[in-house]
Amino acid sequence: MAIIKKLKAVKINQNHLLGIQDLSFSEVSKILDEAKTFIKLNKSESKKMDLLRGKTQINLFFEPSTRTQSSFELAGKRLGADVLSMNIVNSAIKKGETLIDTAMTLNAMHPDIIVIRHQDSGAPNLLAQKVNCAVINAGDGRREHPTQALLDALTIINRRGKIQGLKIAICGDILHSRVARSNIYLMNMLGAEINVVAPKTLLPHSIERLGVKVFTDMKKGLNNCDIVMMLRLQNERMQGSFLPSPREYYEYFGLTPDKLASAKKDALIMHPGPMNRGVEIDTNLADDINRSVIREQVELGVAVRMACLKLFCKRGL
């Protein structure tokens, strides 16, 4: 955190938060630093601020989401913004309206921020080209989920004080995971060493070019790691068979006490949720308060999203 404090004066130069790839080190530091100030607020009696009073935030979720959508909604409300969560199931999208037309319609209502989740990679980029307000990516296809990576970073920093020099294992369905990609970019930027652990059928092409070491043997991949990030098997994105069975997957890639033993003794377990207990993670490990920081991730998620909303909703501030 020491480095991060020094850079407090840095401004955010981007108009939109589309991905970690677009952020500089100093911008990331600024967001994390800002988020820290909200952690306390979120635990206090009165959680309401008026930083974004008069601002309008639209949540545009084209994919079902529990934690991310409610996290963004709470974050906006706690900052005093007017938050509108669009229910896509009942909207014109279902009547064949294109993303751009929806965007233009919403744009005409003068929102200050649009938070978008979309099943197609690049959808937030397209939206950002067409609207006048800030666009925040809440997950697009398998490309990026920047606020998830940022909240993961904050959780690690909260526990370990730093990320520089840590060894992080990202395990599971890397192929379909935007969380994995954002975390690879972010943790690399913050100086961690990254192992990815997955069966070969769930590894994207040339993943090593993103600056990671690849393991198909989970024990080797976890060896001496400080952080173990588990990913959900994204069955809904899978076309055809990638694995023989959940049972076989659990046997070789599920996080069990036995496999975890090759990581550092105090290694932290993370998961972006929602979890498939007994598929990618042993249910007792997921609930182990000494090892699992899964609930803390959710908690800090609100703080990180408050920081992002504040920093990217710059107009008039």
């Binding site: 697009d140 398998r142 490309r143 990609r181 994207p204 092409h205 040339s206 070019r209």
Partner: peptide
């Protein structure tokens, strides 16, 4: 090539687009 959008490679991995091998 089912579901594929661009060449299967580093770019498809980065853009999060399914590759066509």
């Amino acid at each position: 090539s089912k579901g594929g959008l661009i060449n299967d490679g580093e770019i498809s991995t980065r853009l999060g687009l399914q590759g066509i091998p």
